[in-house]
Design a binder for these strands. Structure first.
Lengths: 224, 224
DNA sequence: ACCTGAACACCGTTCAAGT
DNA sequence: ACCTGAACACCGTTCAAGT
């Protein structure tokens, strides 16, 4: 069978999924494709180029996912718009954690997202923010979302031993605090233990607080 | 010369600094110590144990840094307290980017931070948040900060070629947008270009918006 | 034109051998 | 008790050889 760019990308995405086993390497990719590991070099200059191409696909998927949830026309519900965008970006990346670790900090020149960025800024602008501030807000939201996503992905692809070790460390830290010395931690330890690596809830918390902050900024802009 | 745990940790921290060259490996560590690379195994079970020990040191350094800026007694300026804490954590991690990438998502059982967490929750509690909500807020702030830090560190240790490639991609994306199709992006492109990898400003933006959100939550708690 | 397979420089890690 | 150095299984990458 002869390889194509598409069949390689597809196989690579499969490897990066949680079921795919956790890591993107040439030897695993070769095995998945039934070809010699180095055959991929005929289609991608190096691993970085492969990662960048995969990143494009995941970004596109995230945009697609957002589009399915968002209304077609313009919307005045800026808060829902931002929340859906953030969750979509996060969801599409976390479907391939092994890639998210490599991709999240990278920028590609894919034109796919340009329209969606323009829309996002326009939603914030119509909500009341000056254009520049709307752009800053978009940048802050996206960086925060990608960072939290990479953070979660990095932990999720650690080997089981390291994950259990961290969980044990957490239990030690917050499990047996003397009440008189740490009264507040003692009372909130159960909740903190619940939140341990419940990344979805922590992300929702961060996002919600951030959006409350955006509301404040919109309010301030309205006064002026 | 005989190795000690401390001399190894010190050398490893040096390697992880920006001047240290970018990556923590056993062979580089051996060279730095003037010993065989595998000699480190006499003092640390594996690389993970070494990374965890280094993480402890960096966390301690961050707490130390915060303590120098924060008042000794209790404070009612919750906003300054949270901002100083976040910036200190970030600064101490970014002094060793190569470690930050490995460390940020990990938890150690180091007791050093327990007191500082209790203090943080207490500041938020005195500001008006119920205990549980104060704890959630601490968790959200710390995860956001560590995530943004890891995100920045991951980019900063990429090889020069990849960094320049990303910068070029950015220029392509936002450099020549048709004004009629992307009116808002066209107007904010200069600012977005400025923000590209000006991680300090972006982090300050995210943190500030987050803290505005915390203020909203404190206000809501006061009403009830 | 595309794939194969040996080879190289690098990882972390193990283990027998030295002192 | 601690260090050395050969060895192993893995990386990404190059290149001559095959079809």
């Amino acid at each position: 069978m002869t390889l194509t760019r598409e069949s390689i990308l597809e196989a690579a995405l499969r490897l990066c999924s949680p079921e795919g086993g956790g890591q993107l390497t040439f030897s695993r990719l070769g095995k998945e494709l039934g070809a010699d590991p180095t055959a991929v070099y005929r289609h991608f200059r190096d691993k970085d180029e492969l990662v960048l191409a995969l990143t494009d696909l995941v970004i596109q998927e995230g945009i697609e996912l957002a589009r399915q949830t968002l209304p077609d026309g313009p919307s005045d519900d800026w808060r829902a718009w931002l929340a859906v965008t953030a969750h979509s970006v996060r969801t599409s990346h976390l479907a391939r954690p092994a890639l998210a670790v490599l991709a999240a900090a990278r920028t590609t020149a894919s034109p796919a997202e340009t329209h969606s960025v323009e829309q996002l800024i326009s939603v914030l602008h119509r909500a009341g923010l000056p254009v520049i501030e709307a752009a800053e807000c978009y940048r802050a939201l996206l960086d925060m979302t990608l960072a939290m996503t990479q953070y979660t992905a990095a932990f999720s692809i650690l080997d089981r031993q390291a994950q259990e070790q961290d969980e044990a460390a957490w239990a030690v830290k917050y499990g047996m605090l003397p009440e008189d010395e740490f009264p507040l931690l003692h009372r909130s330890a159960p909740r903190l233990t619940e939140l341990f690596r419940d990344d979805d809830t922590v992300f929702a918390l961060v996002l919600d607080t951030f959006l409350d902050g955006v509301a404040v900024r919109i309010g301030r802009a309205g006064e002026a």
